[in-house]
Every structure is written in structure tokens, then in C-alpha cells.
């Protein structure tokens, strides 16, 4: 097991470096820099600015300084647009928010998705099953940027139960989390249902039933674990989409997470912030995939490592 984790780490670290290099090269090969404006700055001022942020040095040198800064001091450099803020400050403002609703949304979608899927599989072809499948397909085709305004319309404008935006106590959390979670809950429910149905049709379940075990024991002790495998491999990508979904949630509910900072920085060509967030999300992705792989290997005895 230990060797397995080490080997996955050996892949993860070059991946992260590659990600940094790719986003760096992309960013610097784009036409126009962060200081290109409608009204051109005098060339001396531009040169001074470039010198201050090190943009006048060769690309390789810039990249080296950047990577060394990240690795040794965990420093993503200064923002190009807000003179007083470093990239770390901007991430530190937004990330806790994103993490809060992301983590709650993640847990809720896994919990309810799995439960719904199991119920649908147990009552296969009953009305519960049809309803669950219908609801889950429905939630899958409704993107979160449609769900968000509908939620605002119903809960804020008609019922006046919940605040329409901002970030504070739990009333502010409800709508972002619903908008973020619904379609993923549906995907998980569908995934759980189909894999549960398959497991329930397999030989070891027939044996367990033939032994006279109660239905709940069959499901919980024998069927649940193998049925969870496809769901687990879904968790890594799920986490990433939670963070990407933050873009929509932040735009609609003004929650102030990193999604908003990312879009703002992209539109104002704030290279440093864009790169910082891309790398952060990439690192989280890699870490989560690693975690999921380990979990998978731990649950599935068929995997040799």
C-alpha cells in the first residue's frame, strides 16, 4: 500500500509542475499584457511597471523565479491589478467561502445521492424508481445557472424567505448549496442505482439471500461496498466540479468565493491571480484524485498495488 501511494505521488508531482508550466506559457504567450490599456501608457512608465513586476526578464527566468517562489515560500507573487494585495491575500479571502459551500454541497450530494440511488435500486421498477430516475435526469439537464435564478425568484422574490445574495450566516448558504448540489446529487443517484442493480443481480447476493439473511443485512453488509466503487471513482471529478461551479454561484449570489476572483482576474488580465487560482485548483484536483485512488484500492480487493 505504501509503495502504491509513493508511486502515485511520483506521478502527481510532475503533473503539478506541468500544470504550472502550461498555465505560465499560456498566460505569457497571450497578446497584450496586464498593463495594456485603451489609453496607452507612456513607454517609460510601461517599462518601469514591467521592471517592477519582473516582466522584462526572459521567460525562462520569470518562470524559474515563479516556481521557486511557490515551492520555497508558498508565494504566488503580487496581484497585477490591486497594488496592495498579493495573490495569497486574494485566495485567502475567497477560498474559505468556496470551501465552506463546496464541502457542505459535496457531503450532501454524496449522502442524498447514495440514499436515493439505493432506494431506487431496491424498489426497482416501482414508482419510487421511476420518480428517482425522472428527477435525476431532470436535475442533470438543468444547468446550475438556470437553477440559481429560479431559486432566487421563488425564495427571495416570491416567498421572501432567504436573502438573494451575500455571505453571512446559514440563510445565505442554502441557495448556493442547492444550486451547486442538485445535478451532482442526481448523477450520484443514477450511478448508485445502476451499480446497485448490477450488484444485486450477482451470485454472492443470491447466496446471501439463500442463507436466509434479512434484506437489510444483504444490502448493507454485502451489496453496499461493491456497489460504491463507481461512486467513489466519481468523487474526484465531483470535487473539481464543485470548485468550478463556484464560478456560477459566486456570480449569482455574490458569495465572494474564488470563482468570482477567477473570472474578474481573467477579464482584467491579472495573470498572477489567474495562475494562482488555476494552480490551486489543479493541486486540489491532483490531491483528490490521489485520495480517491487510495480509497478505491483499499475497498476493492481486486486491485493489486
Amino acid at each position: 500500500m505504501f509503495g502504491f501511494i509513493l508511486r502515485r505521488l511520483a506521478v502527481a508531482i510532475p503533473t503539478l509542475l506541468l500544470l504550472i508550466v502550461i498555465s505560465f506559457v499560456l498566460m505569457h504567450s497571450a497578446p497584450g499584457g496586464p498593463f495594456t490599456q485603451e489609453r496607452a501608457l507612456p513607454p517609460q512608465v510601461l517599462a518601469n511597471l514591467d521592471a517592477k513586476y519582473g516582466l522584462d526578464q526572459p521567460l525562462a527566468v520569470q518562470m524559474w523565479t515563479y516556481i521557486v517562489g511557490i515551492l520555497t515560500r508558498f508565494d504566488f507573487g503580487p496581484s497585477f491589478v490591486y497594488p496592495d494585495l498579493s495573490v495569497n491575500d486574494i485566495i485567502a479571502q475567497g477560498f474559505p467561502v468556496t470551501l465552506t459551500y463546496g464541502a457542505i454541497g459535496f457531503s450532501l450530494s454524496v449522502l442524498f445521492g447514495v440514499i436515493l440511488g439505493i432506494i431506487a435500486a431496491i424498489r426497482h421498477n416501482s414508482w419510487v424508481d421511476t420518480l428517482a430516475v425522472g428527477v435525476s435526469i431532470g436535475a442533470q439537464v438543468l444547468p446550475n445557472f438556470v437553477i440559481a435564478p429560479i431559486l432566487v425568484l421563488v425564495f427571495t422574490l416570491w416567498l421572501r424567505w432567504l436573502p438573494g445574495g451575500g455571505w453571512g450566516g446559514w440563510p445565505y448558504w442554502v441557495m448556493p448549496i442547492i444550486a451547486l448540489t442538485l445535478s451532482h446529487m442526481a448523477s450520484i443517484a443514477r450511478l448508485t442505482r445502476s451499480s446497485m442493480l448490477e450488484v444485486l443481480g450477482s451470485n454472492h447476493i443470491r447466496t446471501a439471500r439463500a442463507k436466509g439473511l434479512s434484506e437489510s443485512a444483504v444490502i448493507l453488509r454485502h451489496a453496499l461496498k461493491p456497489a460504491m466503487l463507481p461512486v467513489i471513482s466519481y468523487l474526484g471529478p465531483l470535487f473539481v466540479t464543485m470548485i468550478t461551479g463556484s464560478v456560477v454561484v459566486d456570480m449569482y449570489f455574490s458569495t465572494g468565493g474564488i470563482g468570482r476572483s477567477f473570472v474578474d482576474s481573467a477579464l482584467s488580465r491579472d495573470y498572477a491571480v489567474m495562475m494562482g487560482i488555476t494552480i490551486l485548483v489543479g493541486a486540489l484536483t491532483i490531491f483528490f484524485n490521489l485520495l480517491v485512488d487510495v480509497l478505491y484500492a483499499w475497498i476493492d480487493p481486486k486491485i493489486r498495488y
Binding site: 503533473t15 499560456l26 498566460m27 504567450s29 497571450a30 470548485i243 468550478t244 477567477f262 488555476t278
Partner: peptide
């Protein structure tokens, strides 16, 4: 393919569209 899979593509796509 493994390596490319762990790149947050939505972000890269946004970057591409903004940059180019």
C-alpha cells in the same frame, strides 16, 4: 492521458477564451 486528466479544464478553457 493520466496527467492531462488532472488539469482543471474548465479553467483552462476560460483562460484560452479570454487570452485569445
Amino acid at each position: 492521458v493520466d496527467i492531462l486528466m488532472s488539469i482543471p479544464y474548465m479553467f483552462v478553457l476560460i483562460l484560452l477564451l479570454v487570452m485569445f
